[in-house]
Design a binder for these strands. Structure first.
Length: 588
RNA sequence: GGGGCGGUAGCUCAAUUGGUUAGAGUACCGGACUGUCGAUCCGGAUGUUGGGGGUUCGAGUCCCCUCCGCCUCGCCA
């Protein structure tokens, strides 16, 4: 080793010992006679003092620019009283240098490396190696490592086998767009990069592995979001001879172990289970943010005869009128309410009806708001009660078709929580969303699998597959934390006859589409055990657990929203000769 | 593919209604200083205003095209 200690470990008790440190120059303070250097590595910052009297050493120290890589030999000294730095663990001591060695000079950094200094996303990503040199970034990467270690410890301890599955796979129809990889050996044929190991892990169950897990990279060629990257990691899990509760139980115990590891607190189990239909009604979406209340209520039946035409017409047209109450929201300004209405409009609502119940200082029973004048006697109180509005609360209503109303109120709910400061930055609100519909309508009027085609229908609802497909519930479950979908899974179909019926319901007949799944049907017919599993998004989980606002923050080398790597310049064109070898001709 | 916000010195930002030589902090360079730790003080240098075109006596500012970053709708079984 080039060093005897790290920059984070020297204490007062080390005073007098000889030491050699290596690190980056974090700052240089020149006092003419004496020069101070802050030396930084992953473990901390230690002050180095270079006293006068040794001309060469002082001159060398003066020439050290920021981020120069140096090796310092010296003696640990207790700092004089009053000169200690309480802000650093190493602040009691300094290393009095007897020699300085420049291991590598550094050009002035393109972005400041110190924590607390700002730089735009663009330059941070372009110089990611400097960005990652910041202590805060290193804490995140360490946190991610601890989380993944805890995950692996948990599954290892429960007898799961870590099996690797292919990344280069056959292209499969449906689902996320695949990245496509040309085959040199088979010109004109292509691999797909796996969007998930779904089929392989089911085949491992057929093989009898019984309990499988893997931390695996997945690839999806879809547009990016703050919680989506084109390549991301999953904790992929599959278990045999299990039911829903077995999978959910294992995962929430794993989650509790991870939360204990990173937060040191106990996650109360079992997690709340919320049926999909309730999630949609009360929170307007299938991944509710339960860090705050503001539940949505349906008041359609209260406004069928309303004096307010917008409400009456929506109800008559088969739509819904739903709303929520913001506690203390009567204090919100007109400007803030206009902001909420804008949110509702952007989410697809035609408008947002609002009503204040008894503002502070106003008489009992008073309601104020643009549409109150249209309401007949008692109606205002009835719908206010309907959404649970008390004195001083603000009621917000959307009248629309059910889908639009859900989307708009979900957006309004989040915006109102932010406006009223209801978001607890440290909270972890976890739940399972269960009882999803198995199928959903396609644009063409047919049916498609909502989760994937191998999700098992509820066994007591098999007949509905042929009579009323939209009502069939799936044996599926999503893990939701703070409004992010952290994972999703299901009990799979393990019998060929049931799989055939699901295929038929979603219009996969015995044609070419079916051929792509032949190997799976054959596998199911070869003694597939009842099985199920889940896939958890590692990056999202780390993001939520470390309370970071963006998935890029938890990935060492992420892509931008246009799926580029600003540091390396990927993707890039390849040479004509490479294309020729692959028999790929660019479109003219 | 659509919508919104942004791009000015290495970095973070400012620049009135279109008007003189585009400024500040920081970093950088030089000097002073023996106890700083966001060191301080004095001095200096720093620009393709993302790129291209247009309007105008005059464009960082207005118009068109385009590239890049972020957020978002579609998309993500």
């Amino acid at each position: 080793m080039l060093r005897t200690h790290t920059c984070g470990e020297l204490r007062g008790s080390d005073a007098g010992t000889a030491t050699t440190l290596c690190g980056w120059v974090a700052s240089r303070r020149d006092h003419g006679g004496i020069v101070f250097l802050d030396l930084r590595d992953r473990y901390g910052i230690t002050q180095v003092s270079v006293p006068s009297g040794n001309g060469d050493l002082s001159a060398l120290a003066l020439g050290l620019g920021p981020e120069t890589v140096v090796r310092v030999r010296g003696t640990v000294r207790l700092r004089p009283g009053g000169m200690r730095n309480e802000k650093r663990p190493t602040g009691e001591v300094e290393v009095e240098a007897s020699s300085l060695e420049v291991l590598n000079p550094a050009r002035p950094p393109a972005i400041p490396v110190a924590d607390g200094e700002s730089a735009s996303d663009e330059v941070r990503l372009r110089h990611r190696y400097l960005d990652l040199r910041r202590p805060s970034c290193q804490r995140v990467l360490e946190g991610r490592h601890r989380i993944l270690s805890a995950v692996r410890r948990f599954f290892d301890g429960e007898g799961f086998v870590d099996v690797e599955t292919p990344a280069l796979v056959r292209w499969t129809p449906g689902g996320a767009r695949n990245y496509v990889v040309p085959s040199r050996v088979h010109p004109g044929s292509f691999y797909a990069l796996a969007e998930s190991p779904q089929l392989f892990k089911q085949l491992l169950m057929v093989a009898g592995l019984d309990r499988y897990y893997q931390v695996v990279r997945c690839f999806r060629d879809e547009d990016l979001r703050l919680d989506r990257q084109p390549e991301f990691s999953q904790v992929d899990v599959e278990m045999s001879f299990v039911e829903e509760e077995d999978v959910m139980g294992a995962v929430e115990r794993m989650l509790a172990a991870v939360v204990k590891e990173v937060d040191g607190r106990d996650l109360p189990l079992p997690l709340r289970r919320i049926p999909y239909s309730e999630a949609m009604l009360r929170y307007g979406c299938d991944k509710p943010d339960l860090r705050f209340g503001l539940p949505i209520s349906d008041v359609t039946d209260l406004v069928r005869e309303s004096g307010f035409t917008v409400f009456r017409a929506a109800a008559a047209a088969g739509g819904v009128v739903r709303g929520l109450s913001v506690p203390g929201g009567a204090s919100l300004s007109r400007k803030e309410i206009d902001g909420l209405e804008k949110v509702a409009r952007e989410a697809g609502a035609k408008g947002l009806a609002w009503m204040k119940r008894e503002e502070p200082g106003s008489p009992e029973g008073e309601f104020r708001g643009p549409f109150v004048k249209f309401l007949a006697g008692g109606e205002a109180a009835a719908i206010a009660d309907g959404v649970g509005a008390a004195r001083g609360d603000l009621s917000l209503f959307v009248a629309a078709d059910e889908e639009s109303a859900c989307a708009a109120l979900a957006a309004v709910r989040g915006a109102a929580a932010r406006a009223k400061g209801l978001l607890d930055g440290t909270a972890l609100a976890c739940c399972w969303v269960v009882d999803f519909p198995l199928l959903e309508r396609t644009e063409g009027g047919g049916w498609a699998a909502r989760h994937h085609a191998f999700t098992s229908p509820r066994p007591d609802q098999l007949e509905l597959l042929e009579t009323d497909p939209g009502r069939v519930l799936a044996r599926a479950y999503d893990l939701v934390i703070n409004g992010f979908e952290i994972g999703g899974g299901s009990i799979r179909t393990h019998r060929t006859d049931v799989q055939e019926r699901v295929f038929r319901a979603i219009g996969i007949g015995p044609g070419e589409a079916r051929e792509k799944f032949t190997f799976l049907l054959e596998a199911l017919a070869s003694g597939a055990p009842p099985h199920g599993g889940i896939a958890l998004g590692v990056d999202r989980l780390v993001m939520v657990l470390l309370r970071l606002p963006n998935i890029r923050d938890v990935i060492a080398f992420p892509k931008t929203t246009s799926a580029q790597d600003l540091m390396t310049g990927a993707p890039s064109p390849v040479s004509p000769s490479q294309l020729r070898e692959l028999r790929i001709r660019p479109e003219a």
